[in-house]
């Protein structure tokens, strides 16, 4: 599904990604851990196509296609979803409006008929129920005045609605209370399927108890320095990254 080959990228003229190699097959969940400032969010932004994140060399294939040639909205419509580490506020735009606009924009891109307000409402009610989100959140402006945890839940809600093929989760667990963490993880697990894949950035192995990854990678200083299975996360939790770099 996703093949990252020797990816180098700069931000503000500074090289942050220094040769990433990573292959994610359909059906797999990969977790990425690593110290602050290692370049985890940068990797997710590069994959999503954010302006200012410049790829200097390497390539990325998504479903066999050159991902880097696509605009951010094309990538989204082709099934890449990024749950932001810091979700952005959009004053005056009701969450429901935002979601419906996004949902229909993607359907339109794929040549599917758009849904009307009634249909959409039915659909979104289902999702809010699953994720235990109060409907009044839909009326509020996107992320405006949301608590840290609410913002993260809102990201999961958006993802559940848009049903992406490739989920990129950037520290979605940070800021969630224990119950919310479980609900959010359930949301991700519901999407898990042999056709879908996920890249989950986290600092805590606790999340990986709920969303069990097939692989765990350690990203440090712009490179993947170690890969392993789920047990690597436990190891890191015990010993920290310092032990790793010393080794």
């Amino acid at each position: 599904m996703l093949e990252i080959k020797n990816l180098h990228a700069t931000v503000g003229g500074k090289e942050i990604l220094k040769g990433i190699n990573l292959t994610i097959k359909a059906g797999e969940i990969h977790a990425i851990m690593g110290p602050n400032g290692a370049g985890k969010s940068t990797l997710s932004y590069v994959l999503a196509g954010r302006d200012g994140y410049e790829v200097t060399s390497g390539e990325v294939l998504y479903k066999g296609e050159d991902l880097l040639a696509l605009s951010p909205d094309e990538r989204a419509s082709k099934g890449i979803f990024l749950a932001f580490q810091y979700p952005v506020e959009i004053p005056g735009v009701a969450s429901a409006t935002f979601l419906k606009t996004a949902y229909n924009a993607q359907r339109k891109y794929r040549g599917e008929p758009e849904v009307d307000a009634m249909e959409f409402l039915k659909l979104i009610r289902e999702k809010t129920k699953e994720l235990d989100i109060k409907d009044d959140m839909l009326k509020r402006a996107v992320n405006v005045g949301f608590s840290g945890g609410e913002k993260k839940r809102n990201e999961v809600l958006q993802m559940s609605l848009l049903e992406p093929d490739l989920m990129l989760l950037d520290e979605t667990d940070s800021g969630l209370d224990i119950d919310a963490l479980k609900i959010a993880a359930d949301g991700v697990n519901r999407l898990r399927s042999p056709e879908r894949a996920g890249l989950i950035i986290t600092h805590y192995q606790r999340l990986l108890d709920y969303i069990v990854p097939d692989f765990v990678h350690v990203l440090a200083d712009g490179k993947i320095v170690k890969s392993g299975d789920k047990s690597l996360a436990h190891e890191l939790e015990e010993k920290g990254y310092a032990a790793l770099s010393a080794a």
Partner: peptide, 19 residues
């Protein structure tokens, strides 16, 4: 803000209009 909207599938101009 623009990137956030685009990441959800809106074109740049649709994003601007929405914001």
């Amino acid at each position: 803000q623009l990137f956030y909207c685009q990441q959800r599938g809106l074109s740049e101009e649709e994003s601007m209009a929405l914001i």
